[in-house]
Design a binder for these strands. Structure first.
Lengths: 316, 316
DNA sequence: TTGAAAGCGCTAACAC
DNA sequence: GTGTTAGCGCTTTCAA
């Protein structure tokens, strides 16, 4: 592969002139510009990205730490991030963490070694204290609220959202309400769910809280356990529509009617939810991702709250 | 940020020695190694990736061209690619194409400018002739079969898979069989679907072929049109379980029983399919992605056929 | 076992 | 307008 020196020699100019036409500088005579462009085209030449990145000190690549791909919620955020990156001519490196703190730190080091200009953290295992030092090397934006001024946020008011759901359930007369979550109290959204629950129904009965729910199958198992309880819950708030779908399936299989015997409400407005007529709260994660990208690209540390909306269908 | 020179100076050694400890070379005295490591730790030093990549001539980054993210089939492949990349310490840049040929070429240029070591094409709009020249700059692997020896393939025998489904439908007595597809005959899988159809049922009635189906909503609309036909099909083969789910929903909404009045079979074994008891053919796209990554990383041009399996549930 | 020095391919300050 | 040249931060001969 030819390099800039070869092009310069072949066009009979200096490397700086070639560099100038490459970077659309003014102050290049039309004659030389044309001559250089001709050689570039003939040689099918493209500048080496590593060399350009090295000297510029930036790569136009942004990282996205994502615990699980193939998970509807995170895929929605990724989708949003990708939407905007394509428009803005940035590239996205997807970094699957499985909530492994060491992996996260390893990924954050890509900021330090200048592979990445910025990092988007959709969800994390590390405490902020371990993450913040990396903000010195590139901007970090989170899809979850944090007060730390070093971190930009594109976030939801999850507490408000959960509160709204539990209150709705209470208004409908439910008193025995169960809920599912992916992780335990190390997770911000689980903590907010529990806080909102407590606000509405008082201290949650631990029996009514099912952890480790990510997929349809997890939901099925959750339904199995929760509906085997005595007394059994009359409503379940699932942490995703696929999980809700699993619960629905188990409930129907055991002869329960929805919402007569059991009310179910999910999250994220996924296709399975529309097919099953599941009510859901759409956190509009695609938009969260888009906003996160914009903050990252602009190295902004703003905190931007994103809207969510309840979608009423027939499962509650 | 300190550079290797600083570290060398502070440790009282030459840059080559620092480089050696960085790259775990033998022939470094324990004393110097320790001294250098100490400074590295104190300074929290990390080598600059662009500089390393520049001199090594490779980046350990692989690109993945994906028409649509937030599409179950492609997300499965991406998931597989990511699985293996994490194990092998490679990074993946996700390149959304929306089947735009110019975008694809732009992405392939990342091979030429050495940003990417290899490229995985999950699906494409360009003819192979336009793609192959880029194989000179880095290995290209496709998730679709092609005879071109320059291209590695991790592929399915889609023809066999489609044939099996149509034959099964025929055995069950169906004669009026419709099918859906995402794209038209520019798409390899659509062409294979039509060929298999023709093999079993003869030339397809164009009325029985619904294009532009990607999502649940598309499936719903497809159901609406297809089931409004006279005579209406007794079976529909959908190009994905979400599409199948949409069809199912429309069919049930219009009072049809499944599979009594209408048989439905989907593809990819997605959660919505398990909830609706939809039969499906699981093309095991996660494995296809994993294999594609391995080929790309090893710069292999092998053609590896991947297995699929029919999953019998109650919708046919 | 170690260091000096020659690049990798490019940009931009500086001089003309 | 254009060319010369000094780096960007690193790896790797080559010689010692």
């Amino acid at each position: 592969m030819a390099n800039i020196q070869d092009i310069a020699r072949m066009a009979g100019v200096s490397v700086s002139t070639v560099s100038r036409v490459l970077n659309r500088h003014k102050y290049v005579s039309e004659a030389k510009r044309a001559a250089v462009q001709k050689v570039i085209d003939e040689m099918n030449y493209t500048p080496n990205r590593s060399a350009v990145d090295l000297i510029r000190g930036e790569t136009k690549i942004i990282g996205a730490i994502i615990p699980y791909t193939n998970n509807q919620a995170f895929d929605q955020m990724l989708h949003g991030i990708l939407n905007r990156s394509t428009e803005k001519d940035y590239s996205i490196i997807v970094l699957p963490s499985k909530y492994n703190p060491d992996k996260e730190i390893e990924y954050l080091s890509m900021l330090k070694n200048k592979l990445l200009d910025a990092m988007i953290i959709t969800s994390r295992a590390n405490p902020w204290e371990a993450i913040i030092p990396f903000a010195a090397f590139g901007s970090i934006v989170s899809c979850e609220y944090t007060e730390h001024p070093e971190i930009g946020c594109s976030y939801l008011d999850r507490y408000a959202s959960y509160l709204e759901v539990f209150q709705l359930l209470k208004e409908k007369g439910h008193r025995r309400v169960a809920f599912t979550s992916a992780r335990g109290s190390e997770s911000n959204s689980t903590r907010q769910t529990m806080a909102a629950y407590e606000q509405v129904f008082g201290k949650p009965n631990p029996e009514y809280h099912e952890l480790g729910c990510f997929s349809f199958e997890d939901g099925y198992r959750a339904g199995e356990r929760l509906l085997g309880l005595n007394p059994r819950p009359t409503a379940i708030y699932a942490n995703g529509d696929e999980v809700a779908g699993g619960i629905y399936k188990y409930a129907r299989a055991s002869g329960l009617s929805i919402p007569g015997d059991l009310a179910i409400i999910g999250q994220e407005n996924q296709p399975i939810g529309v097919s099953l007529e599941l009510s859901t709260v759409d956190h509009q994660l695609v938009k969260v991702g888009e906003q996160a990208f914009d903050l990252a690209m602009n190295k902004s540390r703003e905190k931007v709250e994103m809207p969510y909306k309840l979608i009423h269908r027939s499962s509650i």
